[in-house]
């Protein structure tokens, strides 16, 4: 038994099965991220005035990651083109680059996560707030690299404050009312930030695994059925480009505004 149109295009629709399949899957992905972006918009619009954070994420890391993903999108496309003109060596090179770029992206992303994880906001008994990266802590005191602000509101819009002085802040444990890091529970911004980028990172991871399979053990098919293999590269590339597309919106929405 053979299923028709796995390699050849069906004449009346003009495409092969897997390509239709991946576009349908991407349509559902649009709705998945669409739901999450809707949640983002509602949380942002519904936030109390002055409570939506600005400038919490490092634009430099975001920019580098944007460029990494754009480059990997290009190498994915070139890998497919190399398959198409039957240059297997170049395919191996381009998709090798894709995998390395994706892994670098994930590395930078996890560094950013770590940065938020060790970033603490500490409510003190005198009504002020200490905020900064944890340097060390023991039973008696907590040492942050950061600053103390009078009003919690001053911690939200970092872009509006031009001269933020950071230094070593030592805090007695006895003075602490509440100590919480910038994990997803911190506020709705960190919540949606971790959820959106986390789901996106899972997509990157999944895509990388698929591309790695096609680059390594899966590439055996190139020898037996190069046309079908090229189709696989194209279809996985479409997914990869979609992941890039999501990042194109995540970057401005989370880092720049």
């Amino acid at each position: 038994m053979e299923i028709p149109y796995t390699v050849k295009n069906r004449p009346d629709t003009g495409i092969y099965n897997a390509k239709l399949g991946v576009w349908l899957f991407l349509a559902s992905e649009v709705m998945l991220f669409g739901g999450l972006f809707s949640a983002y918009v509602l949380l942002r619009v519904g936030a109390q005035p002055g409570h939506w954070p600005h400038g919490w994420l490092d634009v430099r890391f975001g920019t580098v990651n944007t460029i990494l993903l754009a480059l990997s999108a290009i190498t994915t496309l070139l890998a497919w083109a190399a398959c198409k003109v039957r240059e297997f060596g170049k395919f191996k090179f381009f998709h090798g680059c894709t995998i390395l770029l994706a892994l670098t992206f994930l590395g930078i992303k996890s560094y950013e996560y770590h940065d938020k994880w060790i970033h603490y906001e500490i409510q003190l008994k005198d009504g002020t707030f200490a905020d900064g990266h944890l340097e060390e802590q023991d039973d008696k005191q907590v040492v942050l690299h950061g600053r103390i602000v009078k009003d919690e509101k001053d911690l939200y819009d970092l872009r509006a404050q031009k001269d933020i002085q950071l230094g070593e802040v030592k805090i007695d444990r006895a003075n602490i009312v509440k100590m919480q890091n910038y994990g997803p529970w911190h506020n709705t911004f960190t919540a949606i930030y971790f959820t959106l980028t986390g789901l996106h990172a899972l997509h990157i991871l999944g895509g990388t695994l698929v591309i790695f399979y096609l680059w390594g053990p899966g590439s055996k098919m190139y020898k037996t059925d190069p046309e079908r293999f090229t189709n696989r590269i194209e279809v996985s590339g479409l997914f990869w480009h979609f992941v890039d597309l999501v990042w194109i919106f995540l970057f401005p929405v989370l880092y720049l505004t």
């Binding site: 290009i74 479409l238 480009h241 597309l245 194109i248 919106f249 970057f251 929405v253």
Partner: peptide, 16 residues
């Protein structure tokens, strides 16, 4: 967001 849409158009239109 306007620029992001242009960017997305490029990726979807040419790369995809």
């Amino acid at each position: 967001l306007g620029i992001a849409v242009i960017n997305a158009f490029l990726v979807a239109g040419y790369l995809m």
